[in-house]
Design a protein around this nucleic acid. Structure first.
Length: 250
DNA sequence: CCAGACGTTGTT
DNA sequence: GTCTGG
DNA sequence: CCAGACGTTGTT
DNA sequence: GTCTGG
């Protein structure tokens, strides 16, 4: 699955790597985040037709992780909507609309998975792994975004509309499956444009874009349990553990 | 009809 | 044990 | 995903 | 808002 990831690239790098036309939040830049957790703000690449325009424009926006459906009475439900199963997206009431019209990419340097292991003392513990492309390239996780109108705020309040997102999950490929049986769905660069196209609303066609990532591109690196606590952050969280402290993977 | 859910993961 | 918050 | 709370009243 | 269960 995907319940934690890293996103440390600068905004200008993302604008370039994702061939973004419009910076949706020109006044805001997120700091390098090596411990992105649910409810935090993240970058999303999406394509929408701006007001009074006729053409969809690829843009980079800051959204909150944890999708709040339009019908929610309050936004707290978002912390339980951090993932959406690729297999059932098209039917689930919480995701169906977003799947048809509001798909996005969530840029990541890599994501974290916790593997249950037996410690030297026989006690159960969990070893975190950082999973990232072995060539250091950017990951484009498939996501959905949604708008939620906050009834407690005035119409002219800039916070009237909350924009949230969820990460789509799929079965993990063989090697990664040993750590965890689910993983975030990745979109290859040659499918970005189609995935983001808001005019493409046919569920079957869109589902066809959700193909498992090509295997063998990702490396799983054992890291310190410092990542467990969301208050910790910084590049040390993705540093490989010294070999003597790293449990044998396979 | 109304009430209540609407989600995923992992673990036992 | 289970829910909420980050 | 993991960590941390899990509660109410009244008083400062 | 829309679906499911009773």
């Amino acid at each position: 699955m995907c319940g934690r990831y890293a996103s440390a690239r600068k905004k200008h790098e993302l604008l370039e790597e994702f061939q973004v036309e419009l910076d949706g939040d020109p006044d805001q830049e997120l700091g390098a985040d090596y411990n992105v957790a649910p409810t935090k703000n993240v970058y999303a690449v999406l394509s929408r037709v701006p007001k009074e325009a006729e053409r969809a424009v690829r843009q980079l926006r800051i959204v909150r992780w944890g999708l709040v459906p339009a019908w929610a009475k309050d936004p707290s439900i978002g912390s339980r909507m951090i993932n959406a199963r690729a297999e059932t997206l098209a039917e689930k009431p919480s995701f169906r609309q977003a799947f048809a019209k509001r798909r996005c990419l969530l840029p990541a340097d890599g994501y974290f998975e916790w593997m249950p292991v037996e410690g030297d003392d026989g006690k159960k513990r969990k070893q975190p792994y950082f999973i990232r492309p072995d060539d250091g390239g950017v990951l484009a996780m498939a996501g959905l975004y949604e708008f939620w109108k906050d009834p407690s705020r005035a119409d002219d309040d800039p916070l009237k509309w909350l924009v949230t997102c969820t990460v789509i999950t799929t079965d993990a490929e063989d090697e990664l499956g040993r750590i965890h049986d689910r993983m975030p769905m990745m979109i290859e660069q040659d499918r970005w444009a189609e995935w983001l196209d808001p005019k493409l609303t046919d569920a079957e066609t869109v589902s066809g874009l959700l193909v498992p990532a090509s295997p063998g591109r990702l490396a799983a690196i054992p890291v310190s349990t410092d990542v467990n606590n969301v208050r910790n952050n910084g590049p040390d969280l993705i540093k490989p553990l010294p070999p003597e402290e790293a449990p044998a993977l396979f």
